[in-house]
């Protein structure tokens, strides 16, 4: 009987933890991202290699990098597991990747702002596999679901040409 309570109770507690703590943490993170993106609004961000019709200042350009690793919560991995049965869009993992991407981009923008640059060009985003999910380790249960994003860009000091 005790085994049964522990067997059913533990996942239920973890699901509740995901529902209450995970959701509020995610909401707070999104609010923080919105606020920080507002602060970086006057930054010129493109993934072009050069800016037509812009002139560049005396300050030499610099490559900036940013990275973010975001993990999912228990409830979301559970829901994603269910989704795996029926197929379709896995929304719970989508928000995780969006969070990582926005966070990594923001880290570049904030660093550029601190160092006195006002334009970012050739912004590149890529995913990194650090959890080892691309390697068969025969231990799928222990796999951690996470999203690691590496961002890189070149920061310039630019002004609209007259």
């Amino acid at each position: 009987m005790l085994d049964l309570i522990i067997g059913i109770g533990t996942p239920l507690v973890l699901l509740a933890l995901g529902w209450f703590v995970g959701r509020s943490r995610e909401k707070r993170h999104f609010q923080e991202l919105d606020r920080r993106e507002q602060l970086c609004q006057d930054m010129l961000v493109t993934q072009l290699k050069s800016f037509p019709s812009y002139v560049f200042g005396e300050k030499p350009p610099r490559m900036l990098v940013g990275e973010a690793v975001i993990a999912t919560d228990y409830l979301k991995s559970f829901l994603a597991g269910l989704r795996n049965i029926f197929g379709g869009e896995v929304l719970s993992y989508e928000t995780m990747i969006v969070r990582a991407r926005r966070e990594a981009t923001l880290r570049i923008l904030e660093q550029a702002q601190r160092e006195g640059y006002n334009a970012i060009c050739n912004l590149r985003l890529e995913t990194a596999d650090i959890g080892g999910s691309g390697v068969s380790n025969g231990n799928r249960k222990n796999q951690k679901v996470m999203s690691a994003i590496l961002a890189s860009a070149t920061a310039y000091n630019a002004a609209q040409s007259p």
């Binding site: 995901g18 973010a68 690793v69 993990a71 919560d73 996470m146």
Partner: peptide, 23 residues
Amino acid sequence: AASFKNLVGGELKGYTELLTESR
């Protein structure tokens, strides 16, 4: 630490640092 974070979600600071150092 990452296993615990996988319950509640959020940034894995240790892994982010690892990436920063490696880069």
